[in-house]
């Protein structure tokens, strides 16, 4: 089954740059770009787990609006702005690459080389659009309408995946990982977009509290937080399972990872319902 496709000029140029990295090209030649993508997916996921901890910690300052405002003032500079933008790279890569894997595993889409192209193309479009929004910083959108659209898209995506996988004999948590991934694709990418439509949307304490006070947003955020921490927790569980041979140590580490995720999920839910 040959799924390789011809490279365009620009792709050949970009691949040439990537292949200059001795480590990347070593693994790409030895085990294929799919192998490199899998490791990149895993590393991006770990970065996002760490960021989620930091994000919940930062948001916990919302209990004291003055403290939150001072923290936001501290991060209001080019360096933090750049880091916020750079975070979009692992976010969108993990989301789109996850979608590629679901397409391959559940929907028999075997044009993997083409799918990898789409991951990079759509990822580039996303991060460039986000950069544009961040520079402009003057966009307004109805929060209710925006989140309604995103919630509908997430529900449709996760329902399609659920419907496809529900009768398979895959383990329940394995299936939930795919379903939650499909839900989070529009949700996480929408979340980053929304936060950078204008500066106030993601940084001004009054704007954030006002937005989070609506019951509709609370429900969306609640589902969002639960699925993010489930997805992250199961991701860590699979990494532990892939690396730790000792059954007891594996079980112990899995319990610790689940506990930490549960604590942060609880902290996130508490913030949502205290606004």
């Amino acid at each position: 089954m040959n799924t390789s496709i011809q490279r365009t000029g620009i792709e050949a140029y970009l691949t040439g740059i990537l292949e200059r990295s001795e480590k990347l090209s070593y693994y790409a030649r030895a085990k294929g770009w799919g192998f490199v993508m899998t490791w990149a997916h895993r590393i991006a996921g770990l970065i996002l787990v760490l960021y989620m901890f930091f994000h919940i910690y930062t948001l916990s300052a919302l209990y004291e609006p003055a403290v939150f405002a001072s923290k936001m003032k501290f991060v209001d500079n080019f360096v933090f702005g750049f880091l916020e933008w750079a975070l979009a790279v692992p976010v969108i890569f993990h989301a789109l690459n996850g979608a590629r894997l679901i397409c391959y595993e559940a929907f028999r889409i075997r044009h993997d080389a083409l799918m990898i192209r789409w991951v990079f193309f759509l990822g580039a479009v996303y991060v460039l659009t986000l950069a544009h929004l961040m520079f402009m910083g003057n966009q307004q959108v109805s929060a209710g309408l925006f989140w309604l659209m995103v919630a509908i898209a997430s529900t449709i995506a996760s329902s399609i995946v659920y419907k496809k996988l529900r009768h398979t004999q895959n383990r329940l948590l394995w299936r939930l990982q795919r379903v939650s991934g499909a839900f989070l694709l529009p949700m996480v990418s929408g979340h980053m977009f929304f936060m950078h439509l204008n500066f106030q949307a993601g940084h001004d304490v009054d704007t954030i509290t006002a937005r989070m006070s609506g019951m509709g947003i609370k429900i969306v955020d609640f589902v969002f937080v639960i699925l993010v921490f489930f997805h992250a927790g199961f991701g860590l569980y699979t990494i532990i399972g892939d690396w730790v041979e000792d059954r007891r140590l594996r079980a112990g580490l899995s319990v610790v990872a689940s506990f930490v995720m549960a604590v942060f999920a609880y902290a996130g839910v508490r913030i949502i319902f205290s606004m």
Partner: peptide, 28 residues
């Protein structure tokens, strides 16, 4: 435990698309 990296299909000396068969199992 399969991560769909497709390295198995990439290296198979008999050119078997192993990842395809494993994905068939995943899709039920």
């Amino acid at each position: 435990r399969c991560r769909t990296a497709r390295a198995c299909s990439f290296v198979c000396p008999k050119e078997i698309d192993i990842a395809h068969f494993i994905a068939l199992a995943k899709e039920g």
